[in-house]
Amino acid sequence: MNGGHDLGGMHGLGPIDPPSDEPVFHEPWEARAFALTLAASSRGHWNLDQSRFARESMEPGEYLRTSYYEHWLHGLEVLLEEQGLIKDGEIEARMKDSTPGEFTGFADDRVLAADKVVKTLGRGGSARMDGVSAARFNIGDRVRTININPPTHTRLPRYARAKSGVIELDHGGFVFPDVAATDGVKQCERLYTVSFTGAELWGEDCEYPDDVILLDMFDPYLKAA
């Protein structure tokens, strides 16, 4: 989707202003929002691409005004409501009555238990898939990206649509996010790294036309140039 998250090349956002040092979490609520998201997601009701889509669905103005973990909080609320795990208005009601939630046991055996945290996160879960079809492109091939503007999730950013580049790496088969985000189905597509010149992405007149920008591109995003 052409949302507030698709930021590559946007102007007017000001300096980056990196601090020399900073804590992992700036506020206690950020840590809680982070942990809630990971813990709730581990139940498998939604996948990573659906999480990303839920965060991107924030109104663009609001997305740019709010902080990173507010995006996460928004995404988590959207997913929980979609799954019927919380009802509309339930959070607001709880904010008013401040009753602490009593933990009386797991809803089911898919809830991430404390003693499984280190092992589960240490194992992760690769998006790599077996059974990918034969490569359409070889390293060094010239390709052109397609021009799409789906209202749904895609990992082809606006600044790299309808651009010509060169295949640099072939990573094999991976879950295709555009489909996984919409209906949860794991469709296997080949993933390439494609290089583009500054001139191709930003115009011949850009300051450094020879700088190289590389993006990971799924096979359906590409056609032979």
């Binding site: 809680r32 942990a35 809630l36 929980l80 709880r94 904010m95 046991g105 404390a114 499984k116 996160l121």
Partner: peptide
């Protein structure tokens, strides 16, 4: 926002969807 996160945590804990001790472990 902090209140909202706290309310959400309280709801998810009550519903048994997250283990509060797991949240501490993750952090």
């Amino acid at each position: 926002t902090a209140l909202r996160v706290k309310a959400l945590e309280s709801l998810l804990v009550e519903k048994g969807l997250v283990d509060p001790a797991a949240l501490d472990q993750l952090i």
